[in-house]
Design a protein around this nucleic acid. Structure first.
Lengths: 238, 238
DNA sequence: GATTGTTATTGTATTCAATACAATTTGAAT
DNA sequence: ATTCAAATTGTATTGAATACAATAACAATC
C-alpha cells in the first residue's frame, strides 16, 4: 500500500472560458515538439502537479500565470477527477514523468473554473507550448480526460450562471450592446430569447448603465453600448 | 519532490444529512478508546484513505457502508479540501498512521454529499467507533477541518436545493404532512413561509399525491399525509 | 356538552414578472 | 428615395407570488 501511494500524484487543471461575441471558447495549451524522446502535437488544459505544501488554490493561480500569463483571475474549484484510468495513455504519463522526474502511476486532478474577457492578452510562445483559444464546439482530442473536464465545466457554468447571471459579465468586454449580452445568454443556456423582451428587461436593471456611445458601421440601426456596474449590482441584491 | 509526494495521501469524507422533522442533522463517527497509545474521545465525518486504484466514488460508497451501514445512497462529490495544515493536529495524523501503518504528511480529501431519511437504520457499535446523528447547530469540535467541510456541505445543500427542491424529499419519510415539508424548507433556506400559500402551492403539484391517512393524536386539526411521486415529478419537468 | 386553543385548509384580492407580438425607429447600402 | 435588418418602443395577456381574512377540525379544558 505504501508503494501504491508513492505513485499517487495530485495536480490542478484550469478550465478558462471566454466569449468572442458569438461562441464560447476554452483556453488550451498546445504542445508541439519533442520531449524526452517522444513527439507531441496535441492540446491540453493548463495544469500542473501540486508542489510540496502548496495550497490547491495557489497551484491553480500559479499554473494559470505560468502557462497563459493570466493573473488576478478569480478561480473556483469545481470538481475532482480521480479515475485510475486517467493515465491510460502512456504519452500523457511520459509528459509528466519527463517534466517532474518522478514515476507516475495515478494522478488525481482538482479542476478549477474561470471566466475571462477574451480580449485579455495571453502568452503565446513558450518552450514548446502556446496558449490558444478554441471554440468549445470544435474541440480536438485532448490529453488525459480533459474533454470530460471541459464538459463538466460547461455544466458548471450553466448551473452557476442560472443562479447568478452576473458572472456572465466577466465574459463580456467592458462596453457591450444588449444584443451581445443576449447572444451570450443564448449560447450559455442554449435557448432563443425574444429580443424585445430581453431588451426591456435588461435596460430596466439598475446595474446596467447606458453609455453615450453607439455601434459603428453596421448596416442597420446602431445599438447603444452599456456597462455593467458591479457596485450597483451588489446593492441591488440586498 | 519525490519525498514530498510519498507522504501525500488521498482520502474521502462523506457528509450525510438527515432531518428529524425539526432540525437538520449530520451523521458523524464518534471514536472512543485507546488507539496506538493515544486516548480518543471525539467525532469526525465518516471517511478513509483511497486505496490503490479505487475510484473516488467507490471509496465514498465503501466508507459509508463500512462505517455507518448505509448502502445504495446516492453520493455526490462536492469539494476537495487540500490545505496543508489540515494535518495540524498530531492526534488526527496519529489516527491515520495507526490505521494504515504509513507515514502521513499531507492528506487531501474529496468530500461527498448525501441526503437520507433519518429513519434508516445505522450501525451503532463497531470496535471503538459508532455512528450518531448530531444536529448541525450543535456540532462539537471535530477532527481535521471537518467543521469547515460541513459548513461547505450546508452551503451546497442550499444551493442544490434551490435549483432542484425535489432532493428535499430524500430527507423526508415516505409519508409526510405539508407542514413537515414546510418546516424542512424553512430550515434549509432559513426563512419563514406563509402556511396557507405554501399549502396551496404544494398540493397543486402533480407529483404530490394525497393519501387517505391523517395525523393521529394531535390537539388540533389533523393534517393529511402526502407522498412524493418521483415518476410524476420527472415527467412534470419536461 | 359547550368552549377554547391551535393548526389545517379554503377563499379572495392584489401585485408583479414573464411572454407574445405588433409597431416604430434608424443607419447604411442600393 | 427606397429597402433591409436590427434596435427600440408599445400594449395586452397570462400566471405566479404574496397578503391576509375566513372557515374547519381535533383534543383538551371548563
Amino acid at each position: 500500500m505504501e508503494e501504491e501511494s508513492a505513485k499517487l500524484h495530485l495536480s490542478v487543471d484550469c478550465t478558462v472560458f471566454g466569449f468572442d461575441g458569438n461562441r464560447l471558447q476554452v483556453l488550451l495549451i498546445r504542445r508541439i515538439g519533442e520531449f524526452g524522446g517522444l513527439e507531441f502535437h496535441d492540446m491540453k488544459l493548463p495544469g500542473d502537479l501540486v508542489r510540496g505544501v502548496e495550497e490547491l488554490d495557489d497551484t491553480a493561480r500559479r499554473v494559470l500565470a505560468e502557462l497563459t500569463g493570466l493573473r488576478n483571475i478569480p478561480l473556483v474549484q469545481f470538481h475532482a477527477f480521480g479515475s485510475a484510468d486517467r493515465t491510460r495513455n502512456p504519452k500523457d504519463v511520459h509528459w509528466v514523468e519527463y517534466a517532474h522526474q518522478a514515476h507516475v502511476k495515478r494522478i488525481v486532478t482538482i479542476a478549477y473554473f474561470a471566466l475571462v474577457k477574451i480580449g485579455k492578452s495571453i502568452i503565446h510562445d513558450m518552450e514548446g507550448t502556446e496558449a490558444v483559444w478554441i471554440p468549445v464546439d470544435e474541440l480536438p482530442s485532448l490529453a488525459f480526460d480533459h474533454d470530460k473536464i471541459i464538459a463538466v465545466a460547461l455544466d458548471y457554468l450553466r448551473t452557476f450562471a442560472s443562479m447568478d447571471p452576473s458572472i456572465l459579465y466577466d465574459l463580456l468586454p467592458r462596453k457591450f450592446t444588449v444584443t451581445q449580452l443576449r447572444n451570450l445568454y443564448e449560447v450559455v443556456f442554449g435557448s432563443k430569447l425574444d429580443p424585445a423582451n430581453f431588451y426591456k428587461k435588461m435596460t430596466q436593471m439598475p446595474y446596467l448603465t447606458a453609455l453615450d456611445e453607439y455601434e459603428q458601421g453596421v448596416s442597420h440601426r446602431a445599438a447603444r453600448f452599456y456597462r455593467f456596474d458591479k457596485n450597483k449590482y451588489n446593492k441591488s441584491r440586498l
